[in-house]
């Protein structure tokens, strides 16, 4: 392994395809080690207002899944979800009382809140955000300096 590494970064080695292969592999391995793949579906919302401080994984809400089944109006007008990731003060006690997610996720219209890990499925440490949103696509964050 050490010999391979030495060969990969040797400036004076004559170029041939084997050396190129070794170098490419070394570079690839280095990139893989660095790259945390964040390629969530457009509109996936991570909600981490309270979850992680309470010892649960963050919640991931897939917009695409829900809009196949419901018009935006159902949640954003009837149920009172605001158009802002993290802008809704959602707690489990409210959900159990039938507010927010609990309007459907009651074991009747959709699976019940007992399936903790289906919502609380986010990677630990992921902050509240909308994935692939414009602000995430910008090379320089648009909301820099806001906080």
């Amino acid at each position: 392994m050490r010999r391979l590494l030495k060969l990969a970064f040797d400036k004076h080695a004559a170029m041939n395809w084997r050396l190129l292969l070794i170098r490419a592999l070394a570079l690839w391995a280095a990139l893989l080690a660095f790259a945390g793949p964040a390629s969530a579906e457009y509109g996936d919302v991570v909600i981490n207002n309270y979850a992680e401080t309470q010892g649960m994984r963050p919640v991931v809400f897939p917009h695409w899944f829900h809009r196949i089944r419901f018009a935006c109006k159902v949640c954003h007008a009837d149920l009172g979800f605001k158009f802002k990731a993290g802008g809704n003060d959602i707690t489990m006690s409210k959900i159990i009382e039938g507010q927010f997610c609990g309007a459907c996720h009651n074991g009747n219209l959709a699976w019940s809140v007992k399936n903790c890990n289906l919502c609380h499925s986010g990677k630990p440490g992921t902050p509240t955000q909308v994935h692939e949103s414009t602000s995430q696509e910008l090379a320089v964050p648009a909301e820099r300096g806001k906080k």
Partner: peptide
């Protein structure tokens, strides 16, 4: 996808 925890059964 990078935001879900792959170790989570759900």
């Amino acid at each position: 996808d990078g935001i879900h925890d792959p170790d989570n059964d759900g």
